[in-house]
């Protein structure tokens, strides 16, 4: 049973990791914690839901719609809002995105309403048997998509020219400028890429969770825990942090009461902030 829980934890955790990766990437490059991250997840989930409900598109395939939409949204938000506070005080940076989150979730409440919507997929209840392990088809599928996404994005950052520029900017934005990097453009690219990751993860989340205007609050805290754990700005850190949080959550839910398990990620967050604020994969600045 322990093994079964561990596997479940890893599967859920990897998906959490993907959800947090966009937040982490944006922080790494722009040095801004996006407190509206949860609301962007909410928008992604609504796109996937409506693509399924209105057009009959499968949640996984809905990324074909949600990725471009979120990319454009991300570029616009970066160009017109984030861009203006990139050198401002912490207060401005924190509360601009807090305000944006409020606006987005209440727009959803006004225009879509407070109902809970879920996507039904045929394979949601089916399972694969692997020895004594039972693996839900849906979680297996999300796991595969998560891993592929991580590999593709990591390769892109590692080997392409723009990927190197993104990494260079995140390590030293002034020097990157001196090397001829248009850092303003890199910020936009990084924010857009972060939104693409949000779109993909939101599509996967929609298979497992219902969507409603405040769903963002539920995920955003988990995302914060993950990125602080893995190191803000580190993509592999987000995956590892996600898996750790996922495993802890499932194991605590099994061995302690279901209700208290939600506290555990926060305790982990606080301990981590105290002991190793740069996270597992982060470096001190």
């Amino acid at each position: 049973m322990f093994l079964q829980n561990l596997v479940n934890g890893i599967f859920v955790g990897a998906m959490y990791g993907l959800t947090a990766s966009g937040l982490s990437l944006i922080f790494g490059v722009l040095n801004i914690v996006n407190f509206a991250h949860g609301e962007f997840i909410m928008i992604g989930m609504y796109i996937t839901y409506f693509a399924g409900a209105l057009l009959g598109v499968n949640p996984i395939l809905s990324v074909l719609i949600s990725v471009p939409v979120m990319l454009i949204l991300g570029v616009l938000v970066e160009r017109f809002l984030i861009n203006r506070i990139i050198n401002s005080s912490d207060m401005a940076q924190i509360f601009l995105t807090v305000g944006l989150g409020l606006v987005l979730s209440n727009l959803a409440l006004i225009f879509i309403g407070g109902n809970y919507y879920s996507v039904r997929v045929g394979y949601a209840t089916e399972s694969l048997k692997l020895g004594s392990l039972l693996i839900g088809k849906a979680s297996f599928l999300t796991f595969i998509v998560t891993v592929i996404t991580f590999i593709v994005v990591s390769m892109m950052l590692k080997y392409t020219f723009i990927g190197k520029a993104i990494r260079a900017t995140s390590q030293d934005r002034t020097t990157a400028q001196l090397m001829g990097v248009n850092t303003g453009f890199i910020y936009t690219v990084a924010f857009g890429l972060g939104m693409v990751l949000v779109a993909i993860s939101a599509a996967l989340l929609t298979i497992m969770f219902p969507v409603y205007p405040n769903i963002g609050n539920h995920f955003v805290v988990i995302c914060f825990v993950i990125v602080v754990l893995g190191g803000l700005g580190s993509l592999p850190g987000a995956l590892v942090g996600g898996v750790i949080v996922g495993v802890i959550e499932i194991l605590c839910g099994y061995y302690f009461s279901m209700g208290w398990k939600d506290v555990v990620p926060f305790l982990v967050l606080i301990i981590c902030l105290l002991v190793r604020p740069q996270g597992i994969f982060g470096t001190r600045t």
């Binding site: 990494r167 260079a168 390590q171 030293d172 020097t175 001196l178 470096t283």
Partner: peptide, 9 residues
């Protein structure tokens, strides 16, 4: 001044 290499590249 101070080289300013990208430390983790």
């Amino acid at each position: 001044e101070g080289r300013k290499l990208f430390p983790r590249l």
